Amino acid sequence: MKPVEPIEVAEKKISELLLAMAKTGFQGRKLGEAFEIWLEMLKEDEITIFMGLSGAMVPAGMRKIISWLIRNRYIDVLVSTGANIFHDIHEALGFKHYLGSEIVDDYELFKKGIDRIYNVFAYEEEFNRVDYVLANIISGIEGIMSSRQFLEEIAKRLEVKDRDSILVSAYESDVPIFCPAIADSSIGIASSIASRKVVVDTMKDVEELTEIVVNSKKTGVIFIGGGVPKNFIQQAEIVARLKGYEVRGHEYAIQITTDTPQFGGLSGCTFEEGVSWGKINRKARKVQVNCDATIALPILSHALIGVKRKRVPRVRYEGRSD
């Protein structure tokens, strides 16, 4: 057994602090291990790193972190809820989310046209304006396409005031974004009021994501929360196997979640459980950090600043081959 190494208070980089935390206990160690695993992934020559993004991360102020991870190629594929992408578009158009409070009369907020996301506020009227902007854009898109293609078409047409956007960064960096439950968001609301000539075929999402997995020598996953993004990335291993391909399961896995496994939900289920499905390689380097992502993600991302390794995009799917 190795001894616990108490952390000394001294001037140090965040990366050095996390590496020290990896030698302590409880969730501090788990966060340190998450950093170590992310570093190991970045050292691999041929790996595709998937990120699953759920929860209200953009309203909570995590938007520029995800954009930075995309532009610096710390992730290769993003699978997100539609809500995070809508809120990203909201801010890209110049609107804001505001510091609020969870101790408030919500009916008074309703009367004032203010929407609450725990202790973050936003104006309903501004959301509606974004709905109409998106509806106008969507009305000009035609065809049957995956959510990735659909979001790329929106990115092409979006006149943004802030290019430090998840959607714009992904489009300019050739990082695909998938939203398999895109209708469950204000993007779905905007589509419902558009003169729609486009059909988003989420079965194409399954095919494209599986193709990326099949064409990857190795895969790693980083889950911020759980839900649909987590399951969608996980199930690509199963789909590939059913199609007759030899896949080994994700070989690196990080999850940051506040959910626990005892209640049977996917957001809290462990990677060990994923091994039983063949989604995670039994020898995978894996860690589950039980922590609010708005705490863990800023710390991890700032620790990555010192990682200078240049990564080459290796994502391959229909219509694209690097």
Rank of each mutant, 00 (worst) to 15 (best):
Y74C: 00
N290C: 08
H87R: 02
L19H: 08
P261S: 05
H87V: 01
P298R: 04
E237H: 07
F271S: 09
V77D: 01
V198H: 05
L297F: 05
E44H: 02
G244M: 00
L78K: 00
I256K: 09
D322T: 13
G244Y: 03
K243E: 13
R71D: 10
V4K: 13
N72M: 12
T257M: 02
P261F: 01
M21T: 07
E172V: 12
G226N: 04
Y118F: 14
S67F: 03
M145Y: 14
I182K: 00
I177K: 05
I114A: 06
L17V: 09
E11G: 14
C269V: 10
A194S: 15
N215S: 14
N128C: 11
E5P: 08
E172Y: 15
A284I: 09
S101G: 05
L242D: 13
N119M: 05
E46L: 05
S195N: 15
P59I: 09
V160R: 06
R157N: 13
R129C: 06
Y171P: 12
S165E: 02
L17T: 10
G55H: 05
I305K: 11
G225I: 07
L78N: 03
V120N: 01
E153S: 06
E102F: 13
I222S: 00
G268E: 04
L78P: 00
Q288S: 12
I189H: 09
G274E: 11
A20P: 07
R73K: 12
I138L: 00
H90W: 04
S267Y: 00
G82A: 03
N128M: 13
E11A: 12
T210I: 02
S216W: 03
E272D: 15
Q27A: 01
I295K: 01
D76V: 11
R63Q: 11
K197M: 07
L209M: 14
V315G: 04
I212Q: 01
I187H: 03
E16K: 12
F232K: 02
L134S: 04
V287F: 01
G52H: 05
K112V: 07
D162P: 10
A135N: 06
D88Q: 08
D259C: 11
I66P: 03
W277E: 04
E124L: 14
E102K: 15
S267F: 00
N136R: 15
T294Y: 07
I299Y: 00
T258I: 15
A92N: 04
I70D: 10
G265E: 03
T202D: 01
E36V: 15
K283V: 11
I212N: 01
L266A: 14
Y171Q: 09
R285P: 08
V214N: 08
V77K: 04
V214Y: 08
G268S: 05
S321K: 14
I305Q: 10
G220H: 07
E159S: 10
W277F: 08
C179F: 00
D259Y: 11
L69F: 02
E251H: 03
E125D: 12
M57E: 09
R248D: 13
E46I: 05
Y107R: 13
N281R: 06
I144Y: 15
C291Y: 00
T81L: 03
I37M: 05
A20Q: 14
V4Y: 09
G278Q: 09
R163H: 13
K243S: 11
V199P: 01
K2A: 14
S195W: 11
L31G: 03
V221H: 01
V307N: 11
S191L: 14
T219P: 04
F150E: 09
A20E: 15
R282Y: 10
S54V: 11
E126G: 05
N231M: 02
